[in-house]
């Protein structure tokens, strides 16, 4: 066994290490978001009617649009990672730019939603004018702002990181460690996308019928 361990190609070893380190980080991130999902489960299971009423204040079309934007950004990020593995530097830069632009578009739509929600008075503690299901609505929107806010911070970090990776590719070289960096940036980006995939039905799709 030890002979095969020593026979590992250093490049493969470095890629493996980088990938594994990012997965370990993402595991801790899942614990972090997991606590928010658990709080949500508590509120929803203890007052389903209240949560259903509260969720009708969210803007499901904007939420759906944002989900499509983010899923598409993961697609372009995956293509950037693929391009880097093939050594296609210009293609990588282009897809990184598109990914960052889609991420920024998501944040812009989220900002529009937050502005609407402020006007509609569903911001607990600051501007809250809801008269029915007050407790459930306050808890629901508190969780909504914390979860989507923390998610937006993660995405903003992702946008900056993607732009940084793109900027570093301006010189005509694509060394192996840069390929690894783009790969783990992609892992982070897809994770943030996957978190949104769960936030979307939990906040927007609770009670749309009737």
């Amino acid at each position: 066994m030890s002979a095969s361990v020593h026979a590992i190609d250093p490049r493969t070893w470095r890629s493996e290490t980088a990938s594994l380190a990012m997965w370990v980080f993402l595991a801790t991130e899942l614990m972090f978001f997991g606590a928010l999902f658990l709080a949500y489960l508590y509120v929803r299971s203890h007052d389903p009617g209240g949560v259903a009423a509260a969720s009708r204040h969210t803007h499901e079309w904007l939420g759906t649009l944002n989900t499509a934007i983010l899923l598409t950004s993961s697609f372009t990020m995956a293509l950037a990672v693929r391009g880097s593995q093939l050594g296609q530097r210009e293609s990588v830069r282009r897809f990184l730019w598109i990914t960052a632009a889609l991420g920024t578009a998501f944040l812009a739509v989220k900002g529009i939603e937050y502005a609407k929600e402020w006007d509609e008075g569903v911001v607990p503690g600051l501007h809250f004018t809801v008269a029915e299901h007050v407790r459930a609505t306050a808890l629901f929107f508190y969780l909504y702002f914390v979860a989507t806010g923390v998610h937006a911070v993660h995405l903003a970090i992702g946008v900056v990181t993607v732009l940084w990776q793109s900027w570093r590719l301006r010189a005509p070289a694509l060394p192996p460690w840069r390929v690894d960096e783009i790969d783990v940036t992609g892992l982070y980006w897809h994770f943030v996308d996957a978190i949104w995939v769960f936030l979307y039905p939990l906040f927007y799709l609770v009670d749309l019928h009737g």
């Binding site: 493996e16 997965w23 993402l26 595991a27 993961s74 995956a78 892992l187």
Partner: peptide, 29 residues
Amino acid sequence: VAVFFMHLRRASALVVLFALVAIFGLAIL
């Protein structure tokens, strides 16, 4: 997303194990 975009499909057993442990830890929580 995990299998195709994050290429778990082609990842080493160790990476897959860490991904599964993350889910398992959340289930315990």
